[in-house]
Design a protein around this nucleic acid. Structure first.
Lengths: 210, 210
DNA sequence: CAATTGATTAATGAATACAAAATATTGACG
DNA sequence: CGTCAATATTTTGTATTCATTAATCAATTG
């Protein structure tokens, strides 16, 4: 009965996706009983997942009143953005040497992204994949998982922005520029571009929330 | 029955302290049943606390085999150190203006630290307090709680270092230099000192582990 | 006597039960 | 009709129970 992956983790992933894909709207209440019934598991793993989601900022938890999806506030986006603006460049700095095949992989993902239109979630997933790949050679695993966790926040805002702006695809110029800098071996330039994404780049998304 | 502070949080704090003060040694197994009995609560809040501690890196969790205190590996210290080396300076950068009374508060804590000898845990607690105070005016709350969580890791290593080196107190020159830089209004210098603590300063602790 | 197997015990992950608090519902009265 | 209070229902946090797996230890065999 004890599976390799605990139920709490499976439930966590399922709920995270639901929130990120907008199938549970910000502000709405989440009852562990409902989720448990829907997923056919007991309340215990559900509530473990909810507690984790609350700690990571996806949900709000009020003692005695349960959980609800955290509503989008640009203040939060700016806070997390400021953190990622230093962590992602750090991760790039720590890469001792970029394997040649990595650039090929990046290009492949970028191409797939270019060809994806209409499916916002697929776009976001590919964009994520691209950045994950970019930093994947950083030996500081702890840093990578931290970045991964933090990125959940801007992801929600990005999705809302794309949806509201009626955009069907994601610009790839950002990826192109970084890849080019890396091809030139200009790590500093790549670093700068990565940072600017979380400073200047964020303002475009923020503006969608006026 | 529903308290303002959930049992899981109280249990979490209690266990965190036990691990940090070394009353549970690295590598030793933690049985939720034991803890529950000791604290007079049920297994549920205990295991919620254990899951959180595992996610934060204080414990190791193996599915079906429960939890144990993570043993000290300098690799982990270096990884977390590298992260804090950019996050703490960032927090200082974000402080828009340093209230005059903050310097007084810092001096007060530093003085208390100087007068504390023999009680390693008290020293570490005061050192923590000093740094918390230093960054407390940073408006990015998310960053502050992240730093607070990450700091749990080096804390364990620092304690082991002090104990092994047979030191009874903590040097205060570091605090003095930063405070002085701030008095001069030289934020860049303070920033640099704060960063160096997590780069160069860490090596002294690392050296105690072989 | 060491090593392996099998039975026993114990601990984990998940499910369920329970008590208190929060929310919803009903109905009396203006 | 609307307001408020009393009561019923739901929901939460915690405790307890259950099923299964891992750890332990004795017995057996090479």
């Amino acid at each position: 009965m004890l599976p390799r992956e605990p139920l709490r983790d499976q439930v966590y992933l399922e709920l995270l996706q639901r929130v990120q894909r907008g199938s549970i709207t910000p502000g709405s209440r989440i009852r562990d009983t409902d989720i448990a019934k829907q997923l056919g598991v007991s309340r215990t793993p559900v509530r473990e997942a909810l507690i984790r989601l609350a700690r990571e900022g996806t949900l709000d938890a009020e003692v005695g009143r349960g959980f609800r999806v955290r509503s989008l506030a640009t203040e939060e986006l700016r806070e997390v953005g400021a953190i990622l603006a230093v962590l992602e460049p750090l991760a790039l700095d720590l890469v001792v040497e970029f394997p040649a095949e990595r650039l090929t992989d990046l290009a492949a993902v970028a191409r797939r992204l270019e060809q994806t239109r209409g499916d916002i979630d697929a776009c976001i997933e590919l964009d994520d994949e691209w950045h994950r790949l970019l930093l994947s050679d950083c030996p500081n695993r702890r840093l990578l998982t931290l970045i991964e966790t933090l990125r959940q926040t801007p992801r929600r805002y990005l999705r809302h922005y794309l949806q509201q702006a009626g955009r069907l695809s994601l610009s790839t110029v950002h990826h192109g520029r970084i890849a080019e800098a890396l091809r030139r071996g200009d790590r500093a330039a790549a670093r700068g571009l990565l940072e600017r994404r979380w400073t200047r780049g964020l303002e475009e998304i923020v503006s969608a929330f006026r």
